[in-house]
Design a protein around this nucleic acid. Sequence first.
DNA 1: GAAAGTTGTTCCACATATTGAAACTTAGTT
DNA 2: AACTAAGTTTCAATATGTGGAACAACTTTC
Lengths: 263, 263
Amino acid sequence: MSAGHTDGTVGKALGLLDMVVGFGRPVRFVEVQQVSDMPKATLYRLLQTLTNQRMLSYDEERSTYQPGLRLVQLAHSAWRQVTLAPVARPHLDALSAKLGETVHLAQLDGGQVLYIDKRNATRPISMFSDAGKIGPGYCTGVGKAMLAYLPEAELARALSQQSWFGHTEHTHTTPDSLRNELPDIRRTGISFDREEHEPTIICIAVPILDATQRPLGAMSITSSTLRHSLTDLERFAPDLHATASAIARDATGLSLPINTVIA
Amino acid sequence: MSAGHTDGTVGKALGLLDMVVGFGRPVRFVEVQQVSDMPKATLYRLLQTLTNQRMLSYDEERSTYQPGLRLVQLAHSAWRQVTLAPVARPHLDALSAKLGETVHLAQLDGGQVLYIDKRNATRPISMFSDAGKIGPGYCTGVGKAMLAYLPEAELARALSQQSWFGHTEHTHTTPDSLRNELPDIRRTGISFDREEHEPTIICIAVPILDATQRPLGAMSITSSTLRHSLTDLERFAPDLHATASAIARDATGLSLPINTVIA
DNA sequence: GAAAGTTGTTCCACATATTGAAACTTAGTT
DNA sequence: AACTAAGTTTCAATATGTGGAACAACTTTC
């Protein structure tokens, strides 16, 4: 499991925050209570604290809790500091303009893939509503591209954090199955999503590597089997690689983050 | 003061989070210690907890703390749920395309202005790096536009949270001075920033009001005295008002948030 | 290369903040 | 009015967090 019920009160509070935010809609006290295993009073005080801190907001009329704006404010700094997005932006713009395809930029966060930026095939507009999404590491193009370049210790930990759910018949459902693919990815510098996450959805991805070959992030071009074959996608590889190394170059010197989960 | 040192451990932890994130760059333990008034051990444990929870990330090599990616993830939901941005996006696109000016979208958060979206004059691309910024309520166009429509109780509280710093010679430096301007804003539905925040920077702003005349947010067009006079800007008013009410219409039914700071 | 500084980490007796059962207060039904 | 469910407060027990001080690791100085 990821960040959970430890770390004392703070951990509980943050877990609760995740829970409320995760509902994706305003929630009433009872709804939270049913999902949480805390007693009423505890839950109540914790929700108050979070509301007080503007991590949640409380709608008095409907008596519901929602994410608070302080999150947006905090994320602003996070986004700028620990994310490839700012340096990658112009490169993604250029790539997207040249190819006219859907481009994703992602980073690895505790075994999961965190999407940080996106250019849409049709509306080439970067928007935060697509950033911040998370996805599985073991069955996405970007995920595999980054996993392939992880040092063994971190790889092992990342693999242990995957669900190995078989989304489609092509999904890797065991660590070993995925491990078998990684040398190929390292050899070619390319990873494919062969309908492993969603049927008909395919993608080609490349890692963004720093000077020491550590994966800073990954980029992908997504399409569907209706529009492209894998071989079609492969033709994007040179452009992807060029963009990836341009981003990596611009990112040197920046204090990159990540993957340093303590426990 | 805003959210501070209360709310027990959780409050302290979140205050600390703000502090670290606020540095805007990787920080070492001592740097935090100097600014914080907590004893070493306490600070140390708290930082560990936050890192453990991926609210911060720790760079072992440089032994520095940075914002954690979990913030980006959390903000994603916040952004979608409690923000005007998703519904406003197409309208901002259209407005920006039509006028070719810099457009801001903001909401009020505890007396402060929180910028949620932006269209640049030159590069009409929405980007998160501009969202999440905060600004003062008492000396920005969007801030005054929203304050003008606040119920007295909330207005009083909001005004008490301003710094009243005199950024320029045009800045309102007392609550009463600002209060005098609010009836005008309500009458015209327009507020101007007359170089109140930065010299040469002017803007015209309109509130986004729900059916009950509550301010959901505000929009502005920013320019400089080099390019426009206030009278020039006034010509944008009809388009701004049209866009504002279009956004308000699309936002009805959504569970709006905000301004419900308890203490 | 030993001594004097940093900075970062751990210990542990103490105190405070958190806990949660239960009682209470609203608000909404029938 | 009597009932039910949601939300809020109380308070003693105790689990949690506190912080002074000692320790370790790592730099710099002489």
